[in-house]
Write a protein that binds this DNA or RNA. Structure first.
Lengths: 216, 216
DNA sequence: GACAAAATCTAACTTCTATTAGAGTCTAAG
DNA sequence: CTTAGACTCTAATAGAAGTTAGATTTTGTC
């Protein structure tokens, strides 16, 4: 171990300056490392993201990374977690905002909000999301328990939204919800990463898949 | 160069025994190498597919690969080309079969046939297609002219199908065809790689995106 | 069965990689 | 200014990667 005293390499998360003033210097470069890792993985895949390239992109020498992360894998895992965690938080937030309005439990409104939130996340988080949410992305090896759980939670959220929408007649029924969910997320990911403004893609997705109006 | 005499490493394609009897031994191991490369790239990404792993999977020593291919990159490029080429051929074949029937130019029938062909290709070609057709897969570096052209041709085919379907009222109009194409292919890729039988996925996709019946 | 070509192996090399230990520098608090 | 801790660099390690040249084996043909 390089740093045995306080060992910031152990914690995977970047604490959002809980106690005193702004983020410490270590927090900042840790963030910079995660960003660089996301960019590198997005561009060259997990296996192609070299520590040296990440270090250079973050303005460090390769060896210095080990002060912040225990290994290359831990760094990449941390950035993957960060990506899903943030996406999940955004989804939850979007749905919570809806709850404070008139359309509380309306499945149609909830699904639309989720679509927009997903596309917005794809647009804002860019490299993080490109890596994390891609359906069949080659992320070899055991993905790490925490990442797996977060990803599952994200998918479960969407399954729930789809089922509710089907029962309300907003989405085609008589089709396994899991398949619809895969189709939907795959469509959003593919079109969302094409670089178009999220609003445009959202409008297209809604026009394409939604039953034109209320079940009537 | 290792083999300067007849140099099979130069040609990227596997000739389908044009002249005499069955495929020569070189053709067979070349095919085995392409398969191994596809599997390895599908599992570990382009950068993570090591020559040694490919060689072992094909029952060879790493050095022997250079008799068949000029370099690692050329091997992988060849397998990528093989993937799109076959997918494109299947799509063309499916559309041509339709032309011999009553529903010659019906946009709806053509789109349905294309969806089924794409999902079937995803299922049959597996590793090849998983790598080639994935929307935003990290295939770093210049993709190679031939591969790029084939891929463009595939996308152009789909754009045409989508436009025709929109004009016929089979798909939601008023939305850029390119966006719809991305959504559609992304959906098919994502759901198609989930391991479900292609027919089931096709049915789900059709139920989800098609305007219920003819424009009437 | 001998011969030439095709196909594979062996054994090296170079380069790049992650990783480590220890020494050096910066930063903030007293 | 001093000092302790946080942070970063340098230099070196061991291993795995792609690649190559030459020897060796396999294959098909007269």
């Amino acid at each position: 171990m390089t740093a045995a005293s306080t060992d910031p390499a152990a914690g995977a998360l970047a604490k959002t300056d809980p106690a005193a003033g702004g983020p410490t210097k270590g927090d900042r470069t840790r963030r910079r490392l995660l960003d660089a890792a996301a960019a590198e993985v997005a561009r060259h895949g997990r296996a192609g993201a070299s520590l040296t390239a990440i270090a250079v992109a973050a303005g460090l020498k390769p060896g210095s990374i080990y002060f912040h992360f225990g290994s290359r894998d831990q760094l990449i895992d941390a950035m993957l977690q960060e990506g899903v965690r943030e996406s999940l938080a955004r989804l939850d937030r979007a749905l919570a905002e809806l709850a404070g309005q008139d359309q509380d439990g309306d499945p149609r409104a909830r699904l639309l909000a989720a679509i927009r939130a997903h596309l917005a996340a794809l647009h804002d988080l860019r490299d993080y999301a490109a890596v994390v949410l891609a359906p069949a992305l080659a992320l070899d090896g055991p993905p790490g328990a925490e990442f797996r759980d977060l990803r599952r939670a994200y998918l479960r959220q969407w399954s729930g939204l789809v089922e509710a929408a089907q029962q309300a007649g907003v989405l085609a029924a008589g089709v396994p919800a899991a398949v619809v969910r895969d189709l939907l997320l795959g469509a959003l990911n593919s079109a969302g990463l094409a670089g178009r403004p999220p609003a445009e893609t959202a409008a297209a997705a809604e026009a394409l898949i939604m039953v034109p109006s209320a079940p009537r």
